[in-house]
Amino acid sequence: MSTTSIARPAASGPAGRTAGPAVQRPRGYRRVRPYVLSVAGLAVAALFALPYVVMLLDALRPSGDVLATPPSFLPREWQWGTFGTILSDARFLSWLKSSLLVASVSTVVVLVVAVPAAYFTARYRFRGRTAFLLLVLATQMFSPTALVVGIYREFFQLNLVNTYMALILTNAAFNLAFAIWILQGFFASIPQEIEEAAHLDGCGRFGTLWRVMLPLTLPGLVTTVTFTFIAAWNEYVVALTLIQDDARKPLTVGISSYVTGYEQNWDQLFAASVIAIVPVVILFAAIEKHLVGGLTAGAVK
């Protein structure tokens, strides 16, 4: 089944924003449906959050209690000060800053580079199109662990060791594949007619892309932003190798300090980890509603 033959966009704008798939259901189910869904949804949510609730509780007990036998779900002794300790630690704050900077800029770079490439691959036939898509995909097949020696050599020669620039470039390059592949799919599924209509209205190629196509691919963009930001946020081995100054280390590298073979601060490790999740969830909360957008043609004016 071809995508375009089915996808006939709702030209009605707001009407397209109705709830998900609405197909025939038995009557009785209709009535209890909201409750069933809520219960199921909340149960699944609890399942996903549970390990991290344990993590939070581990941050709220003395380090010695974290690995205590037998274990206890709630702390035997509550210790509220750990988050304060972490948040007033200048080293932690500088790691947090590095992570925020590297992850944000990497995400922007990926978007700027991937959107044109994805759009072009979706809309044009050109020689080497398949080769390009496969090349992009191939970049993902090399694990950074295997490439880190060469990456170090490269940035050493470019005199970029110990710079954010090196991390941003690496993160951007290694996360392009996802962005290009998923956005490519989204662009391809947008019917040609919409674009042609925009053309007739006098939009140029870039204008069409910016004003018409991007709003239509918002779910894809949101997924891409989420993915790239998280990947850059959690990158470890390249930052470990390229960054020398303690202040420029990202969180992932920095927080390995909390637990060593000689001194274990499990409470601080987990408190730091909880804090490290927060920016991602905030970012996600801010853009999540666009996932609902779906394919509406309301954007074409």
């Binding site: 470990l240 190798t241 020398q244 100054d245 303690d246 390995s256 060593t260």
Partner: peptide
């Protein structure tokens, strides 16, 4: 450059290799 014990073998090897 302070490196964790878990990673220091890898880091020193990377530097020597280069």
């Amino acid at each position: 450059q302070v490196v964790s014990w878990n990673d220091i073998d890898q880091q020193s090897s990377t530097m020597v290799q280069n």
